[in-house]
Amino acid sequence: MYSWSDINIINLLRNAVDILLVTYVVYKIIMVIRGTKAVQLVKGITVIVVIWFLSSLLGLKTLNWMLTYAVTYGLIAIIIIFQPELRRALEQLGRGRLFSRDTQQEDKLTNSVDAIVKATSYMAKRRIGALISLERETGLNDYIETGIPMNATLTSQLLINIFIPNTPLHDGAVVVRENEIMAAGCYLPLSESPLISKELGTRHRAAMGVSEVTDSITVVVSEETGGISLTKNGELHRNLTEERLGEILTQEWANQAKGTVAIRWNWRGKKNG
């Protein structure tokens, strides 16, 4: 027979498992909509719900009545608005990928790092200017919309071709999301920091500017010197070697994006477990 203490322990474990499962499901839903326009819609819905709660708490009957109907019928609107995200989540669930680690995607991310390092090294030796911004937690859709949509798989050959001088897309930034080039010729915000060296041009100021307002990582190749620089969290790292660039991208971008294990980068730019 179970004692009261045994029953309480069972109930406690059941509640703990229940909370953990709900938390994990919410986390996975957030990961599905991350970096999409749905994030902004979620923020708007959150504001409406907060106002609805406050109106009820403060006794604002008319406002509460309006918001009650808005929330009630808004459930149908949410299904319509979030249709692409819901379809993607159901597709992943059907493949058994929603609640599992996508090792294939992790391989693509590490291959993307390799492609960026190879392309950057090639352009640096030939003094071809380049500006590559890598999306992390904060979505870069506002900047993607200023460029030319590409939605192409990231390869070193494609990156090099984009930044060849006097081509239509070379003057601007390339925005990368995981293993995909989202757009080229994008406009990034210029930093107004007085601490930036006067010898640095527009590319470096744009790289600093986007790193000050987002958590993205941006790689710059100087057209004048061929030097490789990287910006993150409002910091500028200059004169990077191929090896150092690969290490930073792996530690700060690929690992952060998918939670992969640490990968060391040797002088050839290849991955070591």
Score class of each variant (00 low, 15 high):
residue 177 R to S: 15
residue 259 G to S: 10
residue 211 S to I: 05
residue 261 V to N: 08
residue 187 Y to K: 07
residue 144 I to Q: 01
residue 243 E to F: 08
residue 153 T to I: 15
residue 264 R to T: 14
residue 202 T to S: 11
residue 142 D to L: 02
residue 177 R to Q: 13
residue 204 H to D: 07
residue 133 S to D: 10
residue 144 I to K: 00
residue 233 N to C: 02
residue 168 P to R: 00
residue 203 R to Y: 15
residue 261 V to D: 12
residue 236 L to E: 05
residue 241 T to F: 14
residue 214 T to C: 02
residue 253 W to H: 11
residue 152 A to Q: 13
residue 202 T to D: 10
residue 172 G to R: 00
residue 237 H to V: 11
residue 169 L to I: 00
residue 203 R to Q: 05
residue 196 I to V: 15
residue 250 T to E: 09
residue 138 T to Y: 06
residue 162 I to P: 12
residue 180 E to M: 12
residue 240 L to I: 05
residue 242 E to A: 12
residue 130 A to M: 05
residue 257 A to F: 01
residue 226 G to M: 02
residue 151 N to H: 12
residue 153 T to P: 13
residue 197 S to A: 15
residue 194 P to F: 06
residue 172 G to F: 11
residue 143 Y to Q: 05
residue 244 R to W: 10
residue 221 V to Y: 08
residue 241 T to I: 12
residue 129 G to P: 13
residue 200 L to F: 15
residue 214 T to K: 01
residue 227 G to K: 07
residue 226 G to S: 05
residue 159 L to E: 08
residue 238 R to S: 15
residue 129 G to C: 01
residue 131 L to E: 01
residue 260 T to R: 07
residue 174 V to T: 11
residue 236 L to N: 07
residue 239 N to Y: 14
residue 243 E to K: 13
residue 189 P to A: 03
residue 149 P to Y: 09
residue 138 T to K: 02
residue 229 S to R: 00
residue 178 E to M: 06
residue 150 M to Q: 09
residue 199 E to F: 11
residue 168 P to S: 04
residue 229 S to M: 04
residue 219 V to M: 09
residue 157 Q to R: 13
residue 217 I to W: 07
residue 211 S to D: 06
residue 147 G to N: 04
residue 145 E to P: 01
residue 180 E to S: 13
residue 262 A to R: 07
residue 175 V to K: 00
residue 149 P to T: 08
residue 191 S to M: 09
residue 225 T to K: 04
residue 225 T to M: 02
residue 252 E to F: 03
residue 135 E to D: 06
residue 146 T to Q: 00
residue 217 I to V: 14
residue 133 S to I: 02
residue 144 I to E: 09
residue 211 S to N: 02
residue 191 S to E: 08
residue 235 E to H: 11
residue 163 F to P: 09
residue 176 V to E: 07
residue 225 T to Q: 03
residue 224 E to D: 15
residue 244 R to S: 15
residue 242 E to C: 07
residue 250 T to F: 12
residue 128 I to Y: 12
residue 252 E to C: 02
residue 129 G to N: 01
residue 251 Q to V: 08
residue 141 N to Q: 10
residue 146 T to P: 08
residue 146 T to W: 03
residue 140 L to Q: 07
residue 193 S to W: 07
residue 153 T to K: 13
residue 191 S to V: 11
residue 160 I to E: 14
residue 162 I to W: 14
residue 191 S to T: 12
residue 232 K to W: 04
residue 209 G to I: 06
residue 129 G to F: 05
residue 241 T to L: 09
residue 150 M to E: 06
residue 208 M to D: 02
residue 260 T to I: 13
residue 204 H to F: 14
residue 216 S to R: 01
residue 248 I to D: 05
residue 162 I to T: 11
residue 135 E to N: 04
residue 152 A to L: 10
residue 143 Y to D: 03
residue 260 T to V: 05
residue 188 L to C: 06
residue 155 T to W: 12
residue 219 V to E: 06
residue 261 V to K: 10
residue 247 E to C: 08
residue 226 G to P: 12
residue 216 S to W: 03
residue 233 N to T: 03
residue 242 E to D: 14
residue 253 W to E: 02
residue 129 G to A: 14
residue 166 N to F: 15
residue 239 N to Q: 13
residue 137 E to T: 13
residue 238 R to C: 14
residue 210 V to N: 00
residue 171 D to I: 01
residue 249 L to H: 10
residue 152 A to R: 09
residue 195 L to S: 15
residue 229 S to K: 00
residue 248 I to M: 11
residue 234 G to L: 05
